[in-house]
Amino acid sequence: MSESTTSKTTVEKISAETWVGVELLIVCLTLVFFLVQNGMGTPSQDPMTASNPSVVDTPEEMDMAEAMPATSYDFTAPPPDSYSLPIIQTASDGQVLDESGAAHSLREMMNGQITILSFIYTRCDDEMGCPMSTMVLHDIRNATAERPDLADNLQLISLSFDPAHDTPEVMADFKPGDVEGHAAQWRFLTTRDESDLAPILTGYGQSINRKLSDDMSESGKIFHLLRVYLIDKTGQVRNIYGLGFLDPRLLLADVETLLLEEN
C-alpha cells in the first residue's frame, strides 16, 4: 500500500463525531468569510453578484455565493417503489485502463452490476464539479457498507477525461481508501490516450473543451458539464444526473428502484 493511500485510510477511521465537528467548524468559517466579503449578509442589489447554479468549469470566474452549499436539496427523496426509470440509451463501450494499467472493455468492467459512472479529471478544482461528484460517490460508497443488498449489486466508476495527466498511477493515488465493512466496489479508470477516450465521451454525450492559456498552451483546465450516469445490469442508461440532480439520496433511491424492478 502506498504512503498516500495509508494516509487516506487513516483519515477514514477518524470518528464520525470528529468529522461532524470539523465540518461544522469549517462551514462556519466559510460563512463568516463569505459574510465579510459580501457586506455582512446584506442582499446585493447588483444583479452581477447574484448566484447562479452553473456547471461551467471556470473556477476563477465562479460566483462567491455559488461556492456556498446553495444547491442543498430541500425535499424528501421519493420511495424507491413509487416510480420507474425509463431506458435512456445503451451504455457505450470503449477501452479503458484500470488502476494497475491493465486494459479492459468498459462494458466488461460493469460486470453485470448496477453501475454509477462519473466522468472526472483529478486536476479539477471547481467545487461544484468533479470534487462534488466524487464526494457524492464517496457518500454512496460509504452508505453501501451498511447495506449488503446494495454493496453486492452496485459498483462505482470514476473515469478520467484527462488521460495525458490522469495516468493509472495518478488514478490509483486519487482513489480514496477503503471503507470498513463490505461496501460497493469503486474503480478509478482512465484511458490510454485521447483516441481511446473520444468514442467513450461521444457515446455518453459527455462534452469537454480544453481551456488554453493566454499563450495558447494547455492550461490544464477543462470546461466540462457535470454528468453522472446510472446504468442497469443489462447495460442500459437509466438516469443522467447533473448538478441539480446529484443528491445521493436520489441516486440510492434509483439504485433500489432498479433492484426492485429485477424482482
Partner: peptide, 29 residues
C-alpha cells in the same frame, strides 16, 4: 447510514468552498 447522505456539507466540499472563496474575484455571469 444516512449521515453522509446529504449534499455538499462534507469536509471535502467545505474545504473546496474555502479555497474557492480565497481565490475568486467578481463573477462575470
Amino acid at each position: 447510514m444516512f449521515r453522509h447522505l446529504r449534499p455538499p456539507l462534507s469536509l471535502f466540499s467545505a474545504l473546496s468552498f474555502i479555497l474557492t472563496l480565497v481565490v475568486l474575484h467578481t463573477p462575470a455571469w
